[in-house]
Amino acid sequence: MADALLPMPTELTSFINEWKVKPGNLIMVLHKVQEHYGYIPQEVAVEVSKILEIPLAKIYGVATFYHLFSFKKPGKHKIAVCLGTACYLKGAQDLLDEIDAIIGCKAGEVSSDEKFSVDAVRCIGCCGLAPVLTIDGKVFGCVTADHMAGIIAPYQNDEVN
């Protein structure tokens, strides 16, 4: 059972109140919210709108502009496939297709069992290992579609938490 989203923890509200008076506060606050919840829940966005006295529309305008922010609850494990130039040329799209075939989840989506979320990301800075993907921050390099099932299996079978 997930924790209730509201009220926000004191740590978060005191952060927001501290930033309330500073110009350009919205992005900082949204970062903190996403850091805490893993995404920006709608009811929290409404609360932030009230505290900062910024219309909800503006919050959505900013948060949908930047790729980093998400309004969707992420899966338990986050798969990020690099689609930077090198990875793309070395077949990263095949990896995304294979992931979709295995867990039924395309880039930008969360699997129906909420176990995985898949993202296509820009260069993660290790082109020598292209194509590269990360799962919960762990890097897998020189991956081919054949490797995918083996890489995902431990997460699927809850061998990795």
Partner: peptide, 18 residues
């Protein structure tokens, strides 16, 4: 503030928030 730019680039929509 009913309408806002949602998203960016060619995917931008002019729509209500949330």
């Amino acid at each position: 503030y009913a309408l806002e730019f949602i998203g960016r680039g060619e995917k931008t929509r002019l729509a209500p928030a949330a």
